[in-house]
């Protein structure tokens, strides 16, 4: 292959990658640009790329029209309770399934793996009826309880795979020194698997923040809405006021992007672990 052809190839690759990368970003940039425009400029054809005057007041208007501060508060409470529950209980279970030899281990693991195949549509209705019967609808309890009971098969699987890679000699040595399992879990396994815990943490944050169906089914009063539900409500009412709608969308997207930038490494690591080893 000629040298010229190689260089040409490289240029084509760069053009494709740069073009694709920008194309991925455009909808997000367009959202941000639209959120800063006034309601006349936004409908111009052909569209203006930049607002002639940056209008931050769209954001304050969104806060005045709908209680997004309350939605933030609700979402944050939910995220904290769910992320803690998921990290704590899924790692406890993963420890039990990876590091302790006991009679029911294989059956329990098989059941949990099997439950990953179960569509949420099947369990949604009976679970809803159950929570309704005990009077917990229109509260965040139905959204939190599952997180404190293992947090989901996927996380348990991910952590178990990770825990299996730690040499067994560590446990043995600690055991001989008289340490129980709780001590081994806290003093040996947890410090060694911090990155894996972070992976579970960021994914459970993302899934909670982005969850739509769960809050939609369980939360009725608007004062209990999460940010995602609040945006949906807003979208329904202000469908033609695109600048406000885009400002509201920014409010929902920005926290996710901040967490993503901070924890980017763990997002990518988590995907790699799930796809390649799973």
């Amino acid at each position: 292959m000629g040298k010229a052809k190689k260089i040409l190839n490289k240029i084509i690759v760069y053009i494709l990658v740069i073009f694709g990368g920008i194309a991925c970003l455009i909808p997000l940039l367009w959202m941000f640009r639209s959120s800063l425009m006034n309601s006349v400029e936004i409908f111009m054809t052909p569209p203006k790329v930049f607002p002639s005057k940056v209008l931050w007041s769209n954001f304050t208007e969104v806060f005045e029209l709908y209680p997004f501060l309350t939605y933030y508060k609700n979402s944050i409470i939910l995220v904290v309770l769910i992320v803690f529950g998921t990290v704590i209980t899924s790692s406890l279970c993963a420890y039990g399934l990876a590091r302790i030899k006991w009679v029911g281990r294989n059956i329990v693991f098989a059941c949990i793996m099997g439950s990953m195949m179960l569509p949420f549509a099947v369990t949604l209705i009976p679970t809803f009826i159950m929570f309704r019967k005990i009077g917990f609808t229109d509260s965040i309890i139905p959204l939190i309880v599952p997180a404190w009971l293992g947090g989901g098969a996927f996380y348990i699987f991910l952590l178990r795979q990770f825990f299996m890679t730690i040499p067994r000699d560590y446990d043995e040595a600690a055991y001989i020194d008289g340490a129980g399992h709780l001590k081994i879990y806290m003093k040996i396994i947890l410090p060694l698997t911090k990155p894996a815990m972070a992976v579970v943490g960021v994914f459970s944050f993302l899934n909670t923040w982005n969850d739509f169906l769960g809050p939609l089914v369980y939360l009725n009063s608007e004062s209990k809405y999460t940010v995602a539900l609040g945006l949906q409500l807003f979208t329904g009412v202000y469908r033609s006021e695109w600048n406000l709608m885009m400002a509201a969308s920014c409010l929902v997207v920005i926290p996710v992007i901040i967490v993503f930038i901070i924890g980017q490494r763990y997002f990518l690591e988590g995907l790699t672990m799930s796809g390649v080893k799973g």
Binding site: L28, W30, L231, T235, S249, V253, V256, I257
Partner: peptide, 10 residues
């Protein structure tokens, strides 16, 4: 990573 509700609005 963008929430579905926001994807939809955008």
């Amino acid at each position: 990573i963008v929430p579905t509700v926001a994807i939809s609005a955008i």
